[in-house]
Computed example of a mutant assay.
Amino acid sequence: MHLKSPKHIVPALVLAAVGVAAPAAEIELEGSRLIVSGMLDGSALPAFIGHASNARVRTVMFENSTGGSAEVAEAYAQVIRDRGLLTEARGQCQAACAYAFLAGKEHRFGRGGQVNALLIPLPRRPTPAELLAGGWRGDEARHTAAPATASAASGAAEAVTVSTASSSASADAPASDAGPASAPKEAWLPGKGMLFTSTPTFFGRVYNTYYCDGNQGTDLSRCDRVSDADPYKLGVLTQ
């Protein structure tokens, strides 16, 4: 069941500390689920492609994946799109993981008693119109994923081009495409972007949406709650 989001942030949910290297990705096949955990650094990509070609695989489960490169994230995303796979996020799914997650034919949070969190990297807070348009996720993520995921891995801030729903840049542009030369640039910090959370309660799961400016570290109480940003209405979750 879907409940209205509370006005407080769940203390149990903690972002990965800035500058702490995430473990390399690991791939595990469980029936029709292909579980991907750790950083999307390319080391497990061949194994992922091999398993994904198995006709039994229907769903890719991203579990506690908090970093990686934009190029590798796109490689994962392309396989997911080509195979028409579903995606799930269990625990933490940040930056590169979020981009690959959104490539699923259907994408949802995993079931169970854990807190789930999806952090989509963005150089600035989207306007209400941009939220509704959905241009800040999916294919438009190509324009922010490269500097964002690189910064998450190195712990350094990057300058990125603001990408909006009204951008005239092609959705097929490579991840390194900086967009229109006249677009303003802003510094991106690790942990900066839209954060969608799902917390189990006695009455069902509670969904919250926040914008984190990258300065909050592990203290989510410093992230701003975004009202009227239900992840299902925005298309971030589809089932």
Rank of each mutant, 00 (worst) to 15 (best):
A171M: 13
P126K: 06
S166C: 07
C212S: 09
A22N: 06
A183F: 04
C212M: 01
A55V: 13
S69E: 06
G155C: 04
G214E: 00
A171H: 11
A152D: 14
A141G: 11
F196I: 07
S53H: 14
K4R: 14
T218I: 14
I80G: 03
A17M: 13
L118P: 05
Y207K: 04
W188M: 09
S151A: 15
A98M: 03
E106M: 12
S227D: 14
S151P: 04
F109A: 10
G191M: 02
I9Y: 01
A73H: 04
T66W: 01
G138S: 13
P174V: 06
T164P: 00
A159K: 12
L122A: 07
P184S: 12
A229S: 14
E63R: 15
A100I: 04
V14L: 11
T87D: 05
G204I: 10
S167P: 04
A129L: 13
A73Y: 01
A75Q: 15
G217P: 00
D224I: 05
S221M: 05
L3N: 10
P123M: 05
E71R: 10
V10W: 01
Q94M: 12
G110I: 08
D224Q: 12
L86D: 09
A70S: 12
T218Q: 15
H51F: 12
P231E: 08
L119Y: 04
E140Y: 11
G217M: 06
T59N: 10
L29I: 13
A24L: 08
E30I: 12
G235D: 09
D213V: 02
K185G: 09
V60G: 02
E74D: 14
Q78K: 14
V72Q: 10
A17R: 15
R83D: 05
T149I: 03
V72C: 09
A22P: 05
G214D: 02
D177K: 02
P123T: 09
L3P: 00
T66V: 14
D82N: 14
F196L: 07
V57E: 04
R108D: 12
G204Y: 11
R142D: 06
L195W: 00
S176C: 06
G112V: 03
W136C: 02
G104Y: 04
F203M: 14
D139G: 05
G19K: 07
V18A: 12
H8A: 10
P6Y: 01
L237V: 03
Y210L: 11
